[in-house]
Structure formats: structure tokens, C-alpha cells
Design a protein around this nucleic acid. Structure first.
Lengths: 208, 208, 208, 208
DNA sequence: AATGAATGAGAGTTCATTCAT
DNA sequence: TATGAATGAACTCTCATTCAT
């Protein structure tokens, strides 16, 4: 995968290219982000790019992988500091939104990946969803939530997070940008709490 | 906005271009879909394109508008044939998934719009969400669902629909393609039912 | 093979590109002859090139085919006007040298084809050699030449023609350029005449 | 001309580069053979190249000189072991073909030199031809061959050797590779024997 | 209303060469 | 003596758009 660093100097150049690429991709998207724009932003010559990456696409895929790893770590770390499961869930989403605000490329670039690198796109979503599934299974074993199908629920959670993030973190027309307002997070968690049958009652048992 | 129809012949050419564009965009995405590919598929000369559209971008925006109108209509029609609100909701989502299967361009092209035409993207989601909001408000007035913030809930529903559609309708690796399995739709509706506090109890009243 | 003419205008553009390419290839060789240099010389835009040829390589191969066809025709026509077989042979070589002088690309470009398009190279030589072989077989049946292996002899003749052409037609340092001096052609024909055992005596029968 | 050897270690590096270059040029040709490929094959750093050669071109020219010297030596040595002039000639050609098989770069690289370094090309052929001319003059003085113009005959021999070598040594489609079959060499020598008027009679004296 | 030949800006990528280490 | 990271010019090729017919 890619080529040449090894030295400390090379490692630094590589990191600068990766960071420049994240910025440029976030601003312009994959297609409009030309290699020369990335190298300009990184402050290196155009040819230098190919010392570190095989192609624009390979850099893109590496970037998606990288961002995916980091967002999952951010979510775990966010959740880790919580004491109750509910708090942990909320903290996980909050960390996700924070990461989205700080790394808009994650969101923007992944969506464009549909055509550029479908594999990257699927891997990205699937990995996050797998984390949700594990959490939901655990919660079910602990009797914290209802018996909803964890896979379906996990993809639904993924969709909720993504759409709320898009609407309140990324859009900047109108009410608030860069962060999901507390009230929205509150309502979103209430929505999810209800959905998961918090309290271990299955939805069709509610009336009994 | 663009030029030339007027005659019946012209109207037909225009429609053929729009349909060709939908196909080509769905297959290749906006960037990879060249004007010449669209005109080839439509069976007209390359120059003819500019008799009907100002630019590739304008065609794209018109297509997004068109698909948005059609998917909302499909959802209303789907819901209209139902007798209970619950059935209506389920039928609305089912119609959405059916439309996605028949017109993958809706989904694919809209995601790429993020960079190509952000306005189109926002308008698309906002219009669908507005429909949800209206429905949720009505349901609240009728006491069918809890007092969750309709705006937040509507965006959450949008996210759920999009993600489930992507996962089960569009992806073709592994289990099922082209249609959301009944079981998934069942679980998804149970998830949503719980989320909306079906039964009119607010989530913070549950314990009382 | 290639694309777009059809109209008279297009046909003209294509011919101009082919002629420009022949000139530029002859001067600079395949590698140094950039597409933009060819289009400049042809007086058309750079993009126009790709309306008529799939790639630089495809144009090259087409050009080799074209030159091969023309040189063989020139050789036949040259030979046709002769009355005796000897005169015909001489006229064929003379036509070959004349063609080389007028179309130096034939020679130069074919030699570089070794790496660019080995198939073109082989086809070029093989076709000319096949013509020689046919002629030699006929001459043997008529008892005009000895029983030398026609294939070996034909390749030898090819080599002689190519090397003499290179030395006297293409090189311009020193004695004469652009044409093989009569004396050289005379000696060359004497060499060939002896080689072919003119007079139908096999070399090992000479003494008998 | 170039820099740095002097030490034994340096001399060894230089030789390794030259050998690597011969291989890479033979495989890829001058244009496609990048300096980095040559240094990779030689097992040295990219910068090291310029310690020993001024440029890729200069290395190329040195290589052509080197191969030329070696092929001429191989031909002399081959011829030296023969007892009759005829055997010597045959042995010379055989050595030439053997060298071609072992060093395909000789042939391939020289042909591309047409555009890369015309001077190298001419020098290469001219030197070999001069050897032929000397040999032919000697044979004429000894009355072994006819009075054909030695220069024309020498270039013809050069062409024969090159074309037969290309056809039977280098091409690998079909009948035989890597070596000229005995039968072909036999016929070729018969062809040449006839051409040179073996037996000292001038071609215009044949009938007397 | 319809065509398709023509354009040129700009894309991704390669590579001979330099130079600080 | 040796290195390899860095460079930027140059390459082939694509494509939205124009316009004479």
C-alpha cells in the first residue's frame, strides 16, 4: 500500500498530505479536489504526492479508513466516560457529532464514495453498525432493552445519527451550526429510548 | 430555465433526455456521467442536449426536483390506500423503498448532490421531512403518538428510511436485494412505533 | 477502429491529422512526437485528435499499416513497368528507395515500433517479405534463379534493402542524400544477382 | 565523461549499473526504461546513478559503445578459430547471432537509437561495416572473391545479418527462437557466397 | 428542431534530475 | 561513496460546451 517514507522527514510529509487531503476533500468533494490542490495545500510539489500514494483513489480509501477508525475510537472514548448505559449511548452520539463537526470530511467524503469507491462506503457504515449491534446485544442480555432485532435497530440508529448530524452539524443555514443543540440531542435520545423498548418490555407487551 | 420544447416532438425529446439522464446518473453518478453518454442513451445528437437544458448541472437539478416530486407522490399514494394510521405509515415507507428500488438514481444522485448542488440536496430532504412533520403533528393532535418534537422525530425517520433503504434495497451483497424483507420492515416499524411513543404516553410519563 | 468522420469535413481533418503525424513521427520518433505537436502541425485543436483516433498508439499502428500498404503498392507499380525480371527487381528496389526518401517515417517509425507495437513491426516486415518470397518462387519455377531457400533469401533481400536505404537514403552526412546513387544500385543488384544464382545454376553445380 | 569511480568499490557499482541498464533497456527499450528501474535492478540508490553517469542518455551511449566493442570482439574471436576464409565468415556470423541471443539489448537498443542518439547508431553500424570492408578487400586481393564494390557489399552483409538475426534469433513466434537454425545459416552463406562471386570471377565475366 | 465536429482547459500521472544528509 | 525525498515540466486523454450547417 503506497510507497516511500521511512525517514522522519518522509513521515511528516505524508501526514501533511493526509491532512491537506482531508481538508480539500471536505471542502470540494472527491471529484473537484485535484491532486494539485492537495499538494498546494500541503506545501509540497505535485510529484511528491506519488511518492506516498499510488493514486488519488488510494489516498481517498486510506483517508476513509483512517477517519472510520478515528470516529469509532472517538465514540468509544466518549461512551467510556459514562456510568449508565443511557449516558453512554448519549455520549457516544455526542462524540459522533463532535467528530463530524471537527472532521466534516468524514461525512461528505463518505457519501460521495458511493461511486468513487463503493467498498469504502460499505466498510465504513458496516463497521460502525457492528459496534451498535454488539452494544444492543449486550443491552438485551442485560435486560435493558427490548427484544428488537439488533441488526435492524443498529442500521436505524446509524441512519438517525447520520441524518441528525447532517441537519444540525453540517448545515449552516438558519438555526445553529457545528453542534447539535442539547434539546435536539435530548429529543433524539428520547426517540431512541422509546424505539429500543427501554425497560425491557417488548412493544407488543406494553398493554399487558 | 432552459429552452426549446413547445411542440409535441420537442416535449418528447426532452422527456427522453430526462429518462436517459436518470439511468446514466444512477449507473455512473453525476461526475462520471458525460453529456454525450446521456445523449447517446437518449438517441439524440450531442448538440440537442443544449436545446433543452442550459447545462449538465441544470439538468441534474431538474432531475432531483422531478424525482423528489415523484417519490413524495408515491409515498402519499401508498399511504392513501391504508385505513389505520399505522398501516399508512408502513405503507408510506414501503412505497419509499419501492421507489428506491425502481429509481436508484433518487438515492445515488442525491448523495452526490452534496458537492454538486447543495441546494438541491437540502430541498430534497427538507420537503420529505416536512411531510413527516405534518403527519406527526396531526398524529399528536389526535393523541396517537407521544409529545416528541416533531422536527427531530421527522429527521430521525428520514434517516432511518434512508439507511434501511440503502442497506436492504441498494446493496446487493449477501442477503436480499431490491426489496426490504418483510421482517426488516416489521422490526423497523416496531422500532419507530416505540420511538414515537405510540399510545400517546410521553416517555417521561411512562413510570407514573 | 477510431471514431467520428463521416462528413467530408471530417474526412479532411482525419487526413490532415494522418499527414501531420507522418511528418512529426518521421522527425521526432514515436515517443517524442506528442499529440499536441501533431495537432499543432495539423492545425486543429488538441481534443480533435481523439475524435478520429482512440489513442496515440492506435494512430501509430494505423500509420504503419497505411505506409506498409503504400510502399508495397509503390514497389509493385515500379516493378510493373519493367520488361525483364531483372529490370523488375531493380525497379522494385528503386521504388522502395524512392518511397523511403519521400516518406522517411516508414523507416524510422517502423524501427521504433520494436517496443511501441511489436505486432506492427512484424506485420510490416512479414508482408514485404511475403511479396519477395512469391517472386522468388516464381523465378525458380521459370528457371531464372537457383534453388536457394526462398524464405531465407527473402529475409536477406529485406535486410539488404533496409540497410542500403538507411545508409544512402536517410543518412545525410557526407556523400549524397535522399537517393541511392546509380553505382550503388548497380553493385547492389550485382550482389543480389550473384546471390540468387542467376542463371539457374546451383552454387554447388557451378563447376560442373 | 561522468564522474566518480576510482576505487574498486566504485568500479564495481559502475559495472552493476551498466549491466542492469543492458537488461532493462533490452526489456523495455530506452524510453520506457526509467533510471529508477535501472538503479532498482542494480541494487543501488537512485542518486547513485548520477555519480557514475551524467545522464540517462550518456549511459545509453556508453552502453552502445560497449556492446559494439564486445560484439566486434566476439565476431573476431569466432572467425579466428577458423581455418579457411569461408569458415571464418560463417563463424563470424554465427558469433554475431550468438551475441544477439545473449545480448538482445544490442539489437533492440540500437534500433531505438535512431531518435535517441543518431550518432551512436551510425557509429555502431559503421564500425561493424568497416570490419567487413577490410575483410572483403583482403579477400579480393587474395583473389577469393569477385570485384564487387566492398562498401556496398559490406552494407548489404550488415543488412543480411541484422534481418536474419531479427527474424530467427529475436522473434519467438513459431519456428525456432534464440538461435539461427543450421539450415538457415547454410542457405544464408550460400546466398552470400554467390553474391560475392566466390571463385574470383567478376559477375560480368561469368559468361566468358 | 437537430446535428456532430471542434475546442481547450484541466485532469491524473510519470520521471530525469537535484541536493541535503 | 551513497542515499532517497523532492521537484515540476510534460505527457496522454476527457469533456462540457459552442456553432455552422
Amino acid at each position: 500500500m503506497s510507497a516511500a517514507p521511512r525517514t522522519a522527514r518522509g513521515e511528516k510529509t505524508r501526514r501533511r498530505l493526509l491532512e491537506a487531503a482531508e481538508d480539500v476533500f471536505a471542502e470540494l468533494g472527491y471529484t473537484e479536489a485535484s491532486v494539485s490542490r492537495i499538494t498546494d495545500r500541503a506545501g509540497v510539489g505535485q510529484g511528491t504526492f506519488y511518492l506516498y500514494f499510488d493514486s488519488k483513489l488510494q489516498l481517498f480509501e486510506e483517508l476513509v479508513e483512517d477517519l472510520n477508525r478515528r470516529v469509532r475510537q472517538a465514540m468509544s472514548e466518549g461512551a467510556a466516560s459514562a456510568t449508565t448505559r443511557l449516558e453512554a449511548e448519549r455520549a457516544g452520539f455526542a462524540a459522533f457529532f463532535r467528530f463530524t463537526a471537527e472532521h466534516p470530511a468524514l461525512y461528505r467524503v463518505v457519501r460521495e464514495a458511493e461511486f468513487v469507491s463503493p467498498g469504502s462506503l460499505r466498510l465504513h457504515y458496516t463497521r460502525i453498525v457492528e459496534g451498535y449491534i454488539d452494544g444492543l446485544r449486550q443491552a438485551q442480555q442485560d435486560g435493558d432493552i427490548g427484544d428488537i432485532d439488533p441488526t435492524v435497530a443498529a442500521w436505524a440508529l446509524m441512519g438517525i445519527g447520520e441524518m441528525i448530524g447532517m441537519r444540525w452539524v453540517l448545515w449552516d443555514d438558519g438555526e445553529g451550526t457545528g453542534a447539535v443543540p442539547d434539546h435536539v440531542l435530548d429529543e433524539m435520545m428520547r426517540f431512541i429510548g422509546g424505539a429500543l423498548g427501554r425497560g425491557a418490555r417488548r412493544s407488543d407487551e406494553e398493554d399487558s
